[in-house]
Amino acid sequence: MTSTKDFCVALKEKGFDFYTGVPCSILKGVINYLSEDLDLPYIPATREDEAIGIATGAYLAGKKPVVLMQNSGMGNSIGTLASLVLLYEIPLLLLISWRGFQGRDAPEHILMGKSTLKLLVEIGVPARVLPKEKEKAEETLLEAVKIINERSLPTAIIIRRGVIE
């Protein structure tokens, strides 16, 4: 398990300096932490695709943005990922919570829970699940940063309940 603070500090240390998104209970701690942070902005968007648009604008201004969302909201964003983020190669870090993991969740999350990783892989967004062990989680973040810095591609980190507390 990674602590919320350690995770957010690691993001900042990697140079991520612009945060936007739509909340999820799994990401509650991270979003609340970022919202309290006076150094960097967290911009609450009304929809996930809007958040991606805002983050793209920030990237065009020289920022290194992160977009936070629930996997259901990733469903709202597939078109935007395809026709904006992947088309122009906008290297956003997407932190996506995984509701419906292993089919154990409220009914509205089951189908998207089953399809989250497959959808990302299908459209060509590199995605990895954040491991529970702190050291491994750090490695995963480093791998994502490498893709963003070196290949200028968007990258998703999938976050299950309880992995960041």
Binding site: I43, I52, G53
Partner: peptide, 15 residues
């Protein structure tokens, strides 16, 4: 990405 011109402009103008 129809619909997002104002969002991109907003992210840019904030930054």
């Amino acid at each position: 990405s129809m619909g997002l011109a104002s969002s991109i402009g907003f992210g840019l103008s904030l930054s």
